[in-house]
Design a protein around this nucleic acid. Structure first.
Lengths: 350, 350
DNA sequence: CTGAAAGCGCTTACAG
DNA sequence: CTGAAAGCGCTTACAG
């Protein structure tokens, strides 16, 4: 191993500049009181050597790495291959990374740190963002126990008030979609949720049940594994539409892929979408935009939500006041062919 | 500060178990030779205390954090707000994160570590992925100098053979698009690239020039700032289509937003797309799919490319052999309305 | 089979 | 104005 193979440390700089490590550290960080010409010399030597403080060593000493982590709960239900239809999370992550950089932080994408085989590195961050916590989320419990500051996006369904969170307005959003389906002509509306016990599934279900009660409609709910994707949606269409009695004329599928599959299945069975059956999706995705007919979907504004979450977490880390009453950005309903009947002039959203 | 406010360290475990730190470390990591009942006891105490080794301290000691970083060059040209049209990068990042997790690593999204104000943390990874390096990329130079292993996705245009890279087949892709435009009826094809000096812009330009030479067509090239987005594309349409002589009847815009703006600008000027003018985009994005008419775009397969890049980097880190001759996945051309003339039956791609 | 000691590369009171 | 020493939480030869 030749000498130039290793990156220079503070010792190399100190030796070459003829001062102590302390002085190098102080000079480079503008701390303590160091003579002007000493500072100058240390800087020059550091430059010559290409010295850059080791972020890990500094992190160990200062307990501040300059890294925030992001745990996207629903991503774990999605197995290996990256499917179409997870656009929300990709956009969320990308936007969070940019927001973190604006504050001088890097963003680390992690898997569940509470899971046995999890990379050790998943706990090596100054703070953590948890998107869509699951019921009684062990990751939140772990982070709380380890005293790692965090912000959840969406509340833990079983502990809504225990932890700092950006509360998603899932119940209100559910009303938005169901109202739209009814106004577009549906009388009997089914809900298809995922099986994952995250806040999104739980709160959408709760919203649906409340809406159904208010409209004197008996709930018609099916759950479907997220990983089943488009194919699962197809089977579900066969299941729900085959029954002679209690057949829905409107369906709200939370995931874009289920909705896409449901439409395909309905068409196979001879249904005309939207004339015989209205379908909406709870998550805007490539598949809902490009399928035929295109599918009305809820745009949950991942980009804006991510930025709000990052800003809140960093305020928390840096000891600033955080306004926890601020909600996530208002969702928008993208109205498309799957709920637009011929002759029914639906007003465009404002 | 109460005692239970801090997370337990190896010292706490050692004390409570009545052994040394060495023994705790060895017992928990299965190293050395430790008595069975000692291992048992140490494990139990560690559990009780909720002890989890500090990843930063371990990283310092072992020079291995379990983190790989990702620098997406073109993202930096895109300023603050996350625009529509950067789908490629978001999908790339999300997919890379999943691939990293499969190997027990976390993925950190970073900004240019060679830039003065960069977060220190951007150098705190075991290895780095650089997507679309720029000319003579200072980040590659820095990583090389710091002996941080890295893999580029797309070669440095000025140093194509100097560093390990997944070579993108941008020149071949450019031929694919240009051939399609010609087969669809275009005779005079302009190229609109970004101003960013990354490998993608450089190689697409080179491909265009070669194609033009082979087809005896005088090159007609414009560059347009990536940040100008849709609006920039609009202006460019006015500029290129206003000139009485040498007006193109086909345009290849590398970015989806430029293409979208170009189509809008052309329509304002009274052009019919695709009848009077064919337009294609070099990057598949939400805007190209949802604009009217929808725009033919190149799908560069970000998901598959990211996985290949992560696998290669981790092989490199873990000292395994890497086949650098493997290319990125073959791009697909999504043919849409903007290049499909009425009466021209274009065969669907296989 | 176990532990004292050194050390990873830094920063931070504190003494001079 | 500067530096010796301690310490962040671990791991790793090495001695016993």
């Amino acid at each position: 191993m030749s000498i130039d193979a290793a990156r220079p440390t503070i010792n190399d700089v100190a030796e070459r500049a003829g001062v102590s490590r302390t002085t190098v550290s102080n000079a480079l960080n503008g701390k303590g009181t160091i003579g002007a010409e000493t500072i100058e010399r240390v800087r020059r030597v550091a430059d010559e050597l290409g010295y850059e403080p080791n972020a890990v060593a500094r992190g160990l000493r200062q307990s501040k790495l300059g890294v925030i982590s992001l745990l996207i709960r629903p991503l774990e239900s999605l197995d290996t291959a990256m499917p179409e239809g997870v656009d929300y999370f990709l956009r969320f992550a990308g936007s969070a990374a940019l927001a973190a950089m604006d504050h001088g932080y890097s963003l680390m994408l992690i898997s569940d740190p509470a899971k046995p085989g999890a990379p050790r590195s998943s706990l090596a961050a100054d703070g953590c963002l948890v998107e869509s916590p699951i019921r009684n989320d062990p990751a939140l419990t772990l982070l709380d126990r380890k005293r790692i500051p965090f912000v959840a996006i969406g509340v833990d369904p079983d502990r809504p008030d225990d932890f700092p969170a950006i509360s998603q307005q899932t119940e209100r959003d559910t009303f938005l979609v169901l109202d739209h389906l009814r106004e577009s002509g549906a009388q009997r509306i089914a809900l298809v949720t995922g099986t994952d016990e995250n806040s999104w599934n739980a709160l959408a279900r709760r919203g649906y049940e409340r809406w159904a009660a208010e409209h004197d409609m008996a709930p018609l709910i099916r759950t479907l594994d997220e990983t089943s994707g488009v194919e699962g949606g197809r089977s579900m269409a066969h299941e729900l539409l085959a029954e002679a009695s209690d057949r829905p004329d409107g369906v709200y599928c939370l995931t874009g892929r289920h909705a896409t599959g449901f439409v395909a299945g309905a068409i196979e069975l001879g249904y005309d979408v939207p004339e015989d059956l209205l379908v909406a999706a709870g998550s805007d995705a490539v598949v809902t935009r490009t399928s035929t007919p295109s599918i009305t979907s809820l745009d949950m504004r991942p980009v804006e939500t991510a930025r709000l979450a990052v800003d809140s977490l960093i305020s928390l880390l840096e000891g600033e006041a955080v306004d926890w009453s601020s909600k996530d950005p208002t969702s928008l309903l993208a109205i498309r062919d799957s709920t637009t009947r011929r002759g029914t002039a639906t007003a465009a959203p404002a």
